[in-house]
């Protein structure tokens, strides 16, 4: 029982981060119908930006995260600006463009920060909470809380604000949205910026849990992408559920299947996607590709 609960805690903590990564994938996809393959690298840049500001300038961690979000949101805007001429012209080139940006960001990180990477000291000093032998690291609680708060804010933005509604409209039908006077390009830029901001949030939160280096985005990107597909690509609640399910799947497979855990995780994932190709919360409306 103890092992089960401890595994659960590990799974939920990483699941919360996967959910943030998955939401970043989904918000770009639902608005533009584009899979942003540079997303994993943006997560990495976010982790670097936050940890560098946090460690070098002694900023409080929360401020460092906000700075990192601003930096990566800017990168998101730049990527979108580069891709805009291709919008509705050559979709494949846009996809390849995002892959290219991923490679550029990774190479850039090696140039700026070096290939070795650095460890980030935990911003929460207190030790883990002990509940009947189950140890819950305080930092994990913080990660889950911040992820939940970010999700709530994003939901509010999408449903309650005019800009958010405009983005939803573009997601549903970009031609109709143009017809009623919504600037599709601006909406896309917004999606890219929010996606990158979410990536930065995920990156900064996971920095102290892992080790920040230029290649860390690879695995996080793949797992976040898989989580988004699992939940239903383009769906925001889907991204959250997908992230958590993927985190739990990952951690329980690690406990029960040892070195075959990755194989089992992705096999289960493949089976779920075969049975439900649209994912758990698949929406037909965002199928623009």
């Amino acid at each position: 029982m103890q092992v089960f609960l401890q595994t659960l805690i590990g799974g939920v903590t990483f699941g919360a981060v996967y959910a943030l990564v998955a939401m970043g994938f989904s918000i770009v996809y639902r608005t533009m119908g584009l899979v942003n393959f540079a997303h994993g690298s943006v997560v990495m840049i976010g982790a670097y930006a936050a940890s560098t500001f946090y460690m070098a300038s002694k900023l409080p961690f929360a401020v460092a995260i906000i700075v990192a979000i601003a930096v990566t949101a800017l990168i998101g805007l730049v990527i979108e600006r580069f891709l805009r001429p291709l919008e509705n012209k050559d979709f494949t080139l846009m996809l390849i463009g995002t892959i290219g940006f991923g490679a550029v960001l990774e190479a850039g990180a090696v140039l700026v920060w070096g290939a070795t990477g650095h460890a980030v000291p935990s911003p929460v000093a207190t030790g883990p909470i002990d509940v009947a032998g189950i140890r819950i690291p305080t930092y994990s609680l913080m990660v889950i809380a911040v992820a939940a708060a970010a999700t709530g804010l994003l939901a509010l933005f999408l449903q309650r604000t005019k800009r958010g509604a405009a983005m939803q409209a573009v997601a549903m039908d970009h031609q109709a949205a143009t017809a009623v006077g919504i600037h599709v390009g601006r909406s896309n830029a917004m999606a890219f910026a929010i996606g990158a901001g979410l990536a930065a949030l995920a990156g900064s939160l996971i920095g102290p849990m892992l080790y920040v280096n230029p290649t860390m985005g690879g695995t996080l990107g793949i797992k976040g992408f898989a989580a988004a597909m699992l939940g239903g690509f383009g769906s925001m609640p889907g991204a959250i559920v997908g992230g958590l399910v993927f985190g739990l799947l990952d951690s329980f497979a690690a406990g029960n299947f040892q070195e075959y855990s990755e194989l089992v995780t992705f096999l289960v994932f493949a089976v779920i996607v075969m049975v439900r190709p649209t994912g758990i919360f698949g929406e037909a409306t965002v199928n623009r590709a």
Binding site: Q2, V3, Q6, T7, I9, G10, G11, T13, F14, M209, L210, T219, G247, D250, S251, F252, A254, G255, N256, Q258, E259, S261, E262
Partner: peptide
Amino acid sequence: DEVVTPDQKDFNANLAKIRE
């Protein structure tokens, strides 16, 4: 004797078993 994958980041399950 717990075996993990080289990419694994979360060892809660493996370490909980070891803790026993």
